Amino acid sequence: MTSSHQRPPHHRTVVSYVQRGERMTVGQQRAWDRHWERWGREVKALPAGPVHFADWFGREAPVVLEIGSGMGETTSQLVAAAPEVNYVAVEVYKPGLAQLMMRAEALGAENLRVLRGDAVDLLTDHVEPGALDAVRIFFPDPWPKKKHHKRRLVQPGFVRLLATRLRPGGTLHLATDWEQYAEQMLEVCSAEPLLRNRFDGWAPRPDWRPVTKFEQRAVEEDRVSHDLMFERVELT
């Protein structure tokens, strides 16, 4: 495990998320009490070394990691639609994770595990190289003001970290409704030698990705959403 006093270059000193309140509804608290012990872990409380996803899920299966699952409306649908995968969601917002677990339960999904904390810490300290089959980042905070662009999650060091955690042939799928951030994502991912764009620029919007509330708001505000699909390659 990397020492907190000697972090690798991709570790951020500026985080990309805002701390929010953690007050939960009665329903969210019930879902938390029912499922957290089996489905959840705190990133900061993980033992040193990698998470063994097969042991946690109780089976060997492709591992999909979603970073920033929000309130879980879209994520729960993706989990339920793909029972053959081990779906992991990492999110800092406790009520959001509780809501995700509640939604997954309502859909009868059992192939979900949730991690509360910083995705950078998770990937740096607890995910082995090549352990992930797919990473999804849908509509991350755009930090639209120029002075806040350094807070954006998709930066060269972070993309490099993600690429190393993907298996060869694994995919990085990004989506955003902010044009300038989409262009930044395209530029950063295209510059990473471990990744190859599966399309000539933007990827077609996949039918299987549910419309998020952010995407619907973008439609109402005449903003175009962009998807990007990159694949991990092996360097020769």
Rank of each mutant, 00 (worst) to 15 (best):
V92E: 09
K94F: 03
L97V: 04
L97M: 04
L97N: 01
A98F: 10
Q99E: 13
M101P: 09
R103P: 11
R103L: 15
E105G: 11
L107N: 12
L107E: 11
G108M: 13
A109K: 07
A109F: 11
N111P: 04
N111A: 09
V114L: 13
V114Y: 14
V114C: 14
D118C: 07
A119Y: 06
V120H: 13
A131L: 04
D133I: 09
R136A: 01
P140H: 00
P142N: 04
P142R: 00
P142V: 00
H148D: 06
H148A: 01
H148R: 03
H149K: 02
H149V: 01
R151L: 08
L153G: 02
L153R: 06
G157F: 09
R160Q: 15
L162E: 03
L162H: 03
A163Q: 05
R165G: 07
G170L: 09
H173M: 12
H173L: 14
L174F: 05
A175K: 01
Q180G: 12
A182K: 00
E183P: 00
E183G: 00
Q184C: 03
E187A: 14
V188H: 11
V188S: 12
C189D: 06
S190M: 12
A191S: 15
P193Q: 13
P193F: 13
P193D: 13
P193L: 14
L194D: 08
L195F: 11
L195K: 12
N197P: 11
R198E: 15
F199Q: 10
F199M: 08
